[in-house]
Amino acid sequence: MNDIKQIEIIPFNPKYAKDFADLNVAWLEKYFVVEPHDVELLERCEETIINKGGYIFFAKIGSAIAGTFSLIKMQEGIYELGKMAVSPEFQGKKIGQQLMTFCIDFAKKQHWNKLVLYSNTKLENAIYIYKKYGFVEIELEKDSPYLRSNIKMEFAL
């Protein structure tokens, strides 16, 4: 088993676009369903996230992509933390927490105002991690981009 210290967080590369989609479809199908908005973001991630001022990062261990997350530009200085996923074979190794630390540090270096995320309280481990890192629950708008969302959180930078 790879030592977790060998984790490398790398920026988007088109050769990993399929990993981005596959990691996210796996957890979406396990807990929910893949919604049209997910399909748009996952199947055309370069067009819908990167080219619109967003970012995608990957946790790489050896040659394997172990996890991912995206920062989707909502407006100037406000980004949605979305599409965070860790491969089942790498879960329980604190990769999600390393991705979260990297995400917050990256956002601070960009001098953004805040990060926003949409989730579901059914994902207890994820909600726990978000709160641990300082995200607080805010009101969920009626026209949330995801049908599965029943919680919205933000992190003021």
Results as ranks from 00 to 15, higher is better:
78 I>D: 12
77 G>L: 12
71 L>Q: 13
120 N>T: 04
96 G>N: 06
79 Y>V: 11
113 N>I: 05
94 K>D: 03
52 K>E: 15
103 C>R: 07
94 K>Y: 08
102 F>G: 13
92 G>N: 00
71 L>W: 11
107 A>G: 05
127 I>S: 03
61 I>D: 01
85 A>S: 11
105 D>A: 14
108 K>Y: 07
74 M>T: 11
83 K>Y: 15
88 P>D: 03
124 E>R: 09
55 Y>G: 07
98 Q>A: 08
85 A>R: 12
77 G>N: 15
75 Q>C: 10
94 K>V: 01
54 G>I: 12
117 L>P: 02
113 N>E: 12
57 F>L: 12
84 M>T: 15
117 L>G: 11
103 C>I: 08
70 S>D: 14
80 E>P: 06
119 S>L: 02
113 N>H: 09
104 I>C: 12
67 G>W: 04
118 Y>D: 13
89 E>A: 05
62 G>A: 00
84 M>C: 15
90 F>G: 00
75 Q>N: 08
94 K>I: 03
107 A>D: 06
61 I>W: 00
114 K>I: 05
62 G>E: 03
118 Y>Q: 11
78 I>Q: 13
111 H>K: 15
115 L>G: 14
66 A>N: 01
74 M>Q: 14
63 S>A: 09
102 F>V: 10
73 K>I: 06
73 K>R: 14
81 L>P: 09
93 K>H: 04
127 I>K: 10
107 A>P: 05
80 E>Q: 15
120 N>C: 07
113 N>V: 03
100 M>A: 14
59 A>C: 05
94 K>Q: 07
63 S>C: 00
52 K>F: 05
98 Q>M: 11
124 E>L: 08
69 F>I: 08
120 N>H: 09
64 A>M: 00
103 C>A: 15
67 G>L: 02
112 W>M: 14
82 G>E: 15
112 W>E: 01
101 T>P: 01
80 E>H: 12
62 G>M: 01
68 T>L: 06
66 A>H: 01
78 I>L: 07
